[in-house]
Design a protein around this nucleic acid. Structure first.
Lengths: 322, 322
DNA sequence: GGTGAGGCGGACAACGTTGTCACCCGGGTT
DNA sequence: AACCCGGGTGACAACGTTGTCCGCCTCACC
């Protein structure tokens, strides 16, 4: 900027005024400055601007895995809102590791992001309190913050969706309905199990439940175990998109009614089509980002808790008879 | 930092030394400073550090769409390398819009990212020359830069993959093979068409080719037109993952041999399984990021051009007889 | 011709950090 | 006693920008 100023034969501040479109500059002077800017290929150094202004116009996004379709769609929705607000998005994957999550948040805060959007991996977010008090708002998406911390949160109706699926299978005559879920320490997994269990009522049988971090091997083993019971399940409820797909592979076409949490591409093209209860990851991302920007524009209401509805999409696999 | 200094009763510079682990600070003093840091919850302001140092330890990623499985996997691989190098990743989607791409690059450069990784949307990247000369290296992935610009580039073997698919279909007895591709102004689409055409040789028939930005409607229309020809195609080659899926929906189970460019999740679970030629998006992202960091560590060789191999995965749909 | 207003331009400080250099002080050497 | 040495510490400038404030010039009006 100094160079531009001397090239145009004006003072530093005048260049700054032109760059920022401030009034009080003679059109001819402004033109001369712009010409010098073009000639020298000058572009404002945002770091310095940030240092002065105190705001970075940057939002940090911590998700579980950028490559997961659910989270990448969520991330894209966040990005659209963030870019629309004239900010940029720093994104990083926690890989479901609380330590990495914390480290990423620390890094983001050292960079003075204006706000954070998080899909938390851990259950202890007390380390965030300091940042929040320092004025960096955070919004949680998909999963709530750990105990003792209350901030804006966007969740889907996990329990309600699980009830919906379970009742749907019950309505089609199933009584032995297995549930395959993720590690119950994950909030969504626990809520979905809860919904399943309450909808099953006295039909609940813990031998038909498997909850752990899924791998192709573990899913296969769990299914084998259940299917070789005296009274094997006639239907299967899978607790998230990845599990549904893994289970489909493990079943290898064995006829078992199936319904899953989370929609996924091509669910409609399989035979039979896979019945799911669908979330709206894009909506979740968008709303989380909007909540964040509301805070950034000074809103000071108590934390909001948004629960997004889910939608049952029957496609055939969940309507198979027992 | 000023507050920490006065709280610990030392000079600013001493705190800076402690924070940066520089030698020459008395252990007792350092301890006092660290105690003050913890007490005040201080964390270094990276913006100021950046302003001083000139490097932001930030990499900008411009891709077509963060929500697209291909690009989100690529993005995740980039992220892993970037984080591993102690940097952060700014990501943004161009939505296949050259103007937006340019604007994003401009914004990233104003923020003084250390380097750029791009999946370009446009064909004119002369605007990058200035940034390159200013010392911001760029690496292109999936598609090369426009004419007149030569930088590190990672592509897959588009033409070779298309030849592979076409020959595979020919080997299974097909002579009338249709090609459904994206807008030929997109590099990958053009290269794949080229591969298809050269493999078809004298069997090439332009009535069996449709190249345009795909929508469900356009794909349906193109297929209808081809299938109602006097001598309709007996096989279909779809030019990218999205097109393959769209075509599968449009075909609604009509028996037509099908093979596509790009692998996609569940391709193996459809009936029949979908034969594809698979790229390695994660490898592409990783290599692009590694090339970038090689530049950042001072390498000054001529631009490298990496072509990644592709792999044919027969799953059934491409082995159907005419 | 003097005067006040307003348009325009510039000098300077400050944002928070780090590199440079100088200082202080105790202990060992000449 | 004069000197040097070096570990520990601090003052200061600089990075590039913008907010504040001041001053100049012009023009209209008395």
């Amino acid at each position: 900027m100094k160079d531009v100023a001397s090239a145009a034969g004006v003072a530093l501040k005048t260049v700054s005024r032109v760059v920022n479109g401030e009034p009080g500059v003679h059109p001819a002077t402004a033109e001369r400055v712009r010409e010098a800017i073009d000639r020298l290929g000058y572009s404002r150094n945002e770091s310095a601007r940030v240092l002065r202004a105190g705001r970075t116009s940057t939002v940090g996004l911590v998700i579980e895995d950028l490559a997961d379709p659910f989270y990448s769609v969520l991330g894209r929705a966040v990005e659209d809102v963030v870019i629309g607000a004239g900010c940029l998005l720093l994104s990083a994957s926690s890989s479901e590791d609380p330590a990495r999550e914390r480290e990423l948040v620390r890094t983001f805060c050292a960079r003075r992001v204006d706000g954070l959007i998080m899909v938390p991996a851990g259950h202890d977010h007390s380390y965030l309190r300091q940042e929040l008090e320092a004025g960096t708002p955070a919004v949680f998406a998909d999963r709530p913050p750990g105990p003792g911390l209350d901030v804006d949160t966007v969740l889907c109706d996990n329990a309600g969706g699980a009830v919906l699926v379970t009742r749907h299978l019950l309505a089609h005559g199933h009584r032995r309905i297995a549930f395959l879920g993720d590690d119950p320490s994950i909030f969504t997994a626990a809520r979905r199990l809860h919904g399943y269990r309450s909808a099953m009522g006295h039909l609940y049988d813990e031998r038909l439940v498997a909850m752990r971090t899924p791998t192709p091997g573990s899913v296969r083993a769990d299914l084998e175990r259940m299917l070789s019971l005296d009274r094997p399940p006639t239907a299967l409820f899978t607790g998230n998109g990845r599990l549904t797909v893994t289970a489909l592979r493990a079943l290898e076409g064995r006829p078992l009614a199936l319904a899953g949490f989370d929609d996924f591409e091509l669910a409609d093209l399989l035979t039979p089509g896979v019945t799911v209860v669908a979330q709206d990851p894009a909506g979740m991302g968008r709303i989380a980002a909007e909540l964040l920007f509301r805070r950034l524009s000074g809103e000071d209401d108590p934390p909001r808790h948004v629960t997004l509805p889910v939608r049952l999409i029957p496609r055939g696999s969940g309507e198979l008879p027992p």
